[in-house]
Nucleic acid binder design. Structure first.
Lengths: 254, 254
DNA sequence: TGTTGTGAAAACCTTCACAGCG
DNA sequence: CGCTGTGAAGGTTTTCACAACA
């Protein structure tokens, strides 16, 4: 409780404020900011297509669905260069955000699990559109191996190491059933993939240095369900009484 | 027009002392906690199925991929009742989490946009399996209207108001192309839907009191791309034979 | 003028460390 | 003993408000 020095975990100090520095392109971009940069980029791209030359933080923030102060703070983290009294040059800012996000080079994507969801993902515009080419597809099902989806042939999961290395895959997408997810993940990591997007309802264990992001349908639905039941301001209705009183059979989940 | 995500919701005069109720099951659950409760629930369900009677915060946390202290803090927010020296009763805790998440009653779901992705979602286990019945499907495409997917007939989007009201839809899923998303969203909100899961790459404007969650493939990919480009630390050789180092992490259960 | 960029404050979330209890 | 529950510390993110400036 007393301060007593505390754990000597060295804060990644870096360089404190550098007052007269000319320009620092990107020092340390907070995670929360990274997630929003992609949203800004979408709005910027649209504006660019429409020929809008400059945009103010107010307008861009509205288009992205965030607060203007937050947007400015975000841009300050990537070393933004707006013009006071005018705003941001759309094309310049677009290029800047793309650079920070690492979109200036192609990212080869491998998608594992070409079932119900995976099949849809392979054809989804979201992938191919923005410089993410689906370079490889994998599945265990012999009936699927050999078929061609979105112009890419499905291969056996046993090929993951070889094919991923050969094609320089940097991003892996796991769209398998939960029980297979960890094994597939291990194979991807073994092939040098260090960024994984996981659609399977399972927790993936990865070594340090591998980034995993999770898209979990059930979790999203349950979060919404929470808010639905919150809206019933009947006060003592749902949550007021002992939840475990008699209905403890756990039947709600199939 | 600015939707501005963060309405500073002042704590609506919560009655601090409720003399009649001896226990306070859930006061105010932080958003971050809600998102994790769903993950805990999945692990708990599996343990329940395996007949595990009790579980410690350590083990449950490992299964959910979080820190044990965080798990305990989360559970403290929902009025947890573990037993010191023993752990948590799995079936009791399961029921408690389900109650907090509002899973004790069915949630009727309407899915709009039965194209590539929407079609897959309609059949995805994540929906139907866990108490979220897909009660209605909608699309604009006349070729799709009238077809039956996963046992539900696709109806025209013009029917959204009537059908959603009639079937008591509480959660709407938007899986349309971006340009149609806002209109669809408005229709859902007009039909009384106050929780929306948005798969379209568009920012949705909703009135106060409506909860929108977004699943954005492109954003996820770009976040990963950011980390890929950031990972230029030593030896990324293609022939590097990176030992995957499969330690004994992984599955705590089944 | 109108707008950016940024300290500082506030809110939120995570982690630590240990008292308290079975 | 082992484990939970929690105050307090530490870290991150959001918001505010305004000086600086083309």
């Amino acid at each position: 409780m007393t301060v007593d020095g505390g754990a000597p975990r060295p804060v990644a100090g870096g360089s404190p404020t550098t007052p007269g520095a000319p320009r620092r392109p990107a020092a340390r971009v907070p995670e929360a900011t990274v997630g929003r940069l992609a949203v800004y980029l979408r709005a910027l791209t649209e504006m660019l297509a429409q020929g809008v030359p400059t945009v103010s933080s107010d307008v861009l923030a509205a288009a992205a669905g965030v607060n203007a102060a937050k947007l400015r703070k975000d841009l300050s983290h990537i070393g933004s260069s707006g013009v006071r009294g005018v705003g941001y040059d759309v094309s310049r800012l677009t290029a800047q955000v793309e650079t920070v996000l690492g979109l200036t080079h192609e990212n080869a994507v491998a998608l594992v699990g070409v079932g119900n969801l995976g099949h849809a993902l392979a054809g989804y515009g979201g992938f191919a559109a923005r410089g993410f080419g689906v370079s490889a597809l994998f599945d265990v099902d012999p009936a699927l191996v050999g078929t061609v989806i979105a112009g890419v042939e499905v291969q056996d999961v046993a090929e993951i190491p070889d094919v991923c290395r050969e094609r320089g895959v940097t991003i892996g997408v796991v769209a398998t059933p939960a029980p297979a997810a960890q094994k597939v993940c291990d194979a991807l990591v073994g092939a040098g993939v260090r960024s994984i997007l996981n659609f399977a309802p399972a927790v993936l264990s990865v070594p340090d240095g591998v980034e995993v992001r999770k898209v979990d349908l059930a979790v999203e639905m349950q979060i919404l369900a929470f808010h639905v039941s919150r809206r019933h301001v009947g006060a003592s209705g749902a949550t007021g009484t002992d939840p475990v009183a008699d209905d403890a059979t756990g039947k709600v989940f199939g």
